[in-house]
Amino acid sequence: MSRLTLMRALRSRVIDGVLGYTRSVFPQDFVFGAATSAYQYEGAAAEDGRSPTIWGTENERQRYRGDVAAYGYHKYKGDVKLMAETGLEAYRFSISWSRFIPNGRGAVIQEGLKYYNNVIDELAKRGILPHIMLYHLDLPQALEDEYDGWLSTRIVEDFTAYADVCFREFGDRVLHWTTLAEPKSIPSSTSIPSSI
């Protein structure tokens, strides 16, 4: 069966028989959803005050760029609409720390908060539960340059302050939080000991 046929079946919620599965095969409380990471989805890498991240720096060294990505920063409404039409019940997305705290600490940029508030509100409007990943490989480059990012205990205070902003700004609508993804894959200008 082609991917297109599968997507059409999911869109029309006619899951019976697709690849031999029916929705009833899954537990009643099973949640169908999708997931993205900020760097791979949002694009707009230098818009509205967002600063460079370690993922962007590493990818630029390898000649991959997240400037455009899937352009989600500007087309999230259409993407959320497609999620709803597909019958998805949840969406896990990561937040780009540098989108609203560009230096990793200090002043909060309202445009970045507005974007994530808009995404969360759009999900709610369509009946899709937001699941937030606080960190997915995109530490603000400023913290990496200042103290080697995750290799320093100084990260604890900065990450706590960042998480507090997220909980305060989005916690009234977000029930599901994940701290970080892929901890052994954190790009760094410093090599990470294999014992970690």
Rank of each mutant, 00 (worst) to 15 (best):
D158S: 09
G78N: 10
V14I: 10
V174Y: 08
W177Y: 07
S189E: 13
G149N: 03
L139I: 04
W55E: 12
R61K: 15
Y39W: 15
H74L: 12
F170L: 11
R92A: 06
E42C: 09
E111F: 03
I192N: 02
M7D: 11
F170N: 04
F159W: 06
R11Q: 14
K114T: 15
L175M: 12
K184T: 14
N59H: 05
N59Q: 06
Q28F: 09
I15L: 15
D145E: 10
K75H: 13
D16C: 05
G78C: 05
I54C: 06
Y91K: 14
L4N: 12
G72N: 11
R65H: 10
F32Q: 03
C166H: 00
A69Y: 07
A84M: 00
D121S: 14
R8D: 15
L88D: 08
L175H: 11
S152K: 06
G87D: 05
V18Q: 06
G56I: 11
R65W: 05
R65F: 08
T53E: 06
L88G: 01
E85F: 09
D48N: 13
S51V: 03
S189K: 15
P193F: 06
Q62T: 14
P102Y: 01
E146N: 09
Q110K: 14
F167S: 01
Y115E: 02
E169C: 07
P52I: 00
P183M: 03
L10T: 08
D164W: 00
W177A: 00
E157V: 09
L143A: 04
P102T: 01
T178V: 12
G33R: 02
L175N: 14
V25G: 12
R11H: 11
A124H: 12
V119R: 01
P187G: 02
